[in-house]
Every structure is written in structure tokens, then in C-alpha cells.
Design a protein around this nucleic acid. Structure first.
Lengths: 236, 236
DNA sequence: ATGATTTTGAAAATGGGATGACATCGCAGC
DNA sequence: GCTGCGATGTCATCCCATTTTCAAAATCAT
């Protein structure tokens, strides 16, 4: 299996600095997408998956902090890295620094930036490796998201990507509420009418698969979301 | 259907500044409602839920401080943010500042305003997260507001949103008075005749659910409100 | 192209809240 | 104690929003 290059989303309104950085990072074998403001950055993020985001704090249309929140909303785990001008009030920065994986003030040394990025990606890779092999026992089913397989008795049901993502989120929230909006943002990228419709269709499909085991149930919580209920039958 | 962004209520009588601010904040992806005086601001607040209120101090019909009090009456926890003219004596501001989460004097830098808003919202979000998983034991019932579930013995009663909110408020005031007006303002947005009627209907519904346990009782305190009484039966 | 997957559209089913009708209750003033 | 009136209690019903389901149509992956 070939190594897929790490993909970086870089949002920076200074075209000059942006290009320099992009080129520099590409020399180190990253795939860099450069966007020149917050809105475009968010659009890019929704279009594709990235391994890390480098966000300038001060940008037109949407500042880096806001963009960071939007991104976290879609993917709570993706590493975020802020580039900020020195002028910014430190205390305000301080608050946001917490939500960031790292943070660097301009002007900065590209060398240092690169090292920090490497460090973050490395740390994150390990976490991803764990999450990667996450599996679930749901009633008599065994669910392996990586293989998109749902196994019961002898039979294996292969899930479509969307079915798989949705069931994974439900399983991660087992017995707890999975808010509609959260799933929509994460899986469909945004919470729109038609995406909601689509999601309902997938809920129906998953229900059909799970129907085989009475102890499993996807319950709707009106106006809020869904809940995968697993009734462990007490050994009587 | 729109994505659920943070909603801001902006009350500012200077139409010009108001629109500029509204547009600016909308660029950062907030849903902004602009009202041009205190009265309209209060009406808007009762109509919808907001995450933060930005109030001009000097406004026709109802000034920002008075409006702030009315708003606090409905929701004691919502962050309030005052916009005040530079001319105002700092000590006066100081006095009122107590009730405010932050304030800023005109003219101001939109960038700074935005960051302050974000800081407040962020802080508040953390508080909300705690409250999120609050649960209650009421007699033989277990009440989980997040799932809108009321469980007793094996049976689960799913509550409607209104039932849920009301029971939550009662539970928060367990054995203590829940003033009618407070519940009406918080849950229905305002204390009107019909909302009062509606609330009584919901009290009736809750009583029906709770009837199952004799140690529980929702008592009316004539002219004042309700009280959820929990008689812990002494281990005899 | 072909079959699988996903989106779109619309109608049916369900959940949920407001409201009107009517019964009761609580309390103040007689 | 009795009376009257405003405050509560309960039902049934109407109306709207959300969810579910079904059936294309559109898109995607070979």
C-alpha cells in the first residue's frame, strides 16, 4: 500500500505568504490546498478530507477562530494550527489557544512550523490508528467500520459508505442521543433540508439491517436526533 | 432548513451602525437579529432563543439596562453585552457592568468586539456542556432530560419537549417553589393568559406520569406557582 | 454501460403544542 | 358558613412540524 501524502488545508489571506508557505510545505511532500479567506476555507474543508488545518487568525469573511469552530463542528478531532499576528491581544488568543493543537505567531520560521506540523501529525496518527480499528458489538451483530461489515450469525452485510458512517456514529453514541445536526454536519457536511431527508433514508436502511435482533433499536427523539438502544437482556 | 449557528440579538438604534455590525457578524457566521429599540428587542427575545444579546445602552422606548433586566428575568444565564457611548461616565458603566458579561465603548473596533463575543460564547458553552448531562432521581423515577426520558420500574416514558422542560425546572427546584412566571418566561417565552393555560395542561400531564409513585406530588401554591414535593419515605 | 449508491421528491403517519369548553378549587369579603 | 371570581385542572380537538416510507432520478465507480 502506497503512503498517501498528508493533506493540509492552509487558510491565509496574504497571498504572498500563502504561496511561499504552500511551496515550502509541498517540498516536504504534503498536499497543500491554499484558500485566501475563511469562507473559502470552510468550503474547501467540506469538499475534502484533510489531515491538518493551518488557519490564519485574521482573515476576510470569516476569521480563523470562527472557521476553527465550524471545522471542529464537522470533525472534532482534526488538528488545528493557528497562525496569528503578534499584534493580537494575548488574553484573547490565550482563550482560543486551548482549542488549538498548536499556535505560532508571525513572523515565524518555516523550519519551526514544519517541525510543529510534523509533531502534531505524528501524534495524531497514533490516535487515528487506534480509532481506525475500532469495532463494536451490538446485540448479536459485530460491526467493523473499517471493513464496513456487519456480521450476524454466519451472514455478513456489507454496508455502503454512508450507511457505515452513520452506524458508526450511532454506535459511538450507543444508548445516548446522537443529535441530528451533529451527524449531518459530520457525514453530509452540512445540515440542510435534503441532507436531512437523505439521512432519514439511511436510518431506515440501518433499521432494516438491525431488525434481525430484537434487542436493537434506533429510536427517534423528536426534534433532536436518534438513539441506538441496546437492551442487554439480563442473563435470567 | 438552516444550520444552527449561534444566534445573536442585537439592539441598536443607530440603523447605520446596526446594519454594519449585523453584516460584520454575519460574515463570521452568526445569525443576527437586529432590533432598533428596547421594546422591539424584548419582543424579539421572547419570540426566539438567543445565545447572546448585544445591547446598546442608549435606546428609545427602553434603554439597554432595563432591557437587560427583562431579559435576565426570562433567562438568568444568557450572556449580555453592552455597547455604550464613550461619553458615559465610567463609574456608571462600572455599576451596571456587574450584570453584564462584558461591555465595550463606542467607537470600537469590530475585530475586538468579535473576539470578545467569541470569548464569552466559548466560556458559556463549557458551562452548558456540564448542564447537558444533568439527571435526577425523583422517587422511584429516574429522569434524564437529555433523552427526555422518565424511567420507572422497567417502563420508559418519553416526554415531549415542553413536558421535559417543565419537569426539569420542577426538578431543579425540587421541594421548593417554582414560580409560575419564571417557568412561563423561561419555557414559553412570556407570561400570557394562554401560555398559562398551556402550562396548566402540562402540569396535568406530568401529574399523570408521576401518579405512579405516591411519594411524588406536584402541589399548586395558589397564585404563586408549583412545587414538586418528594417525600422520601423514612426507612421504617 | 451496468450495478451500486446517494439524492430528491412527495405523500402518509406521527408527534406535539395551543386552545376552547367546562369542571373545580381557593380565598376574600360578607 | 356562603358567595363570587379569578386561578387551576382536565379533555378533546385542531393544526402544524418532524419523521417515515416509497419510489424515482441522479450520480458514482468500475
Amino acid at each position: 500500500m502506497e503512503t498517501k501524502n498528508n493533506k493540509i488545508l492552509l487558510c491565509e489571506d496574504d497571498t504572498n505568504l500563502g504561496m511561499v508557505l504552500k511551496n515550502y510545505l509541498e517540498l516536504s511532500d504534503y498536499d497543500v490546498t491554499l484558500e485566501r479567506d475563511g469562507r473559502l476555507g470552510l468550503a474547501a474543508f467540506q469538499r475534502e478530507k484533510y489531515d491538518i488545518c493551518l488557519l490564519d487568525v485574521m482573515m476576510p469573511n470569516m476569521d480563523g477562530f470562527t472557521l476553527a469552530e465550524e471545522i471542529r463542528d464537522v470533525d472534532p478531532d482534526i488538528p488545528l494550527f493557528f497562525l496569528s499576528a503578534k499584534t493580537m491581544k494575548d488574553d484573547i488568543i490565550q482563550g482560543y489557544k486551548l482549542g488549538a493543537d498548536d499556535y505560532i505567531t508571525k513572523p515565524f520560521d518555516s523550519e519551526v512550523l514544519l517541525l510543529k506540523i510534523k509533531a502534531i501529525l505524528k501524534r495524531n496518527e497514533e490516535l487515528n490508528r487506534e480509532a481506525d480499528n475500532m469495532q463494536f458489538d451490538l446485540g448479536k451483530f459485530h460491526f467493523n467500520p473499517k471493513l464496513r461489515e456487519l456480521v450476524a450469525d454466519g451472514k455478513t452485510q456489507t454496508l455502503s459508505p454512508k450507511e457505515n458512517e452513520l452506524l458508526k456514529m450511532l454506535a459511538e453514541h450507543k444508548n445516548d442521543l446522537l443529535p441530528r445536526e451533529k451527524a449531518l454536519k459530520k457525514i453530509w457536511g452540512s445540515d440542510t433540508y435534503f441532507n436531512g431527508r437523505s439521512m432519514d433514508v439511511y436510518i431506515a436502511k440501518l433499521r432494516k439491517y438491525l431488525r434481525e435482533d430484537d434487542s436493537l433499536e434506533i429510536v427517534n427523539i423528536h426534534g433532536n436526533g436518534f438513539r441506538l438502544v441496546v437492551n442487554e437482556p439480563p442473563a435470567s
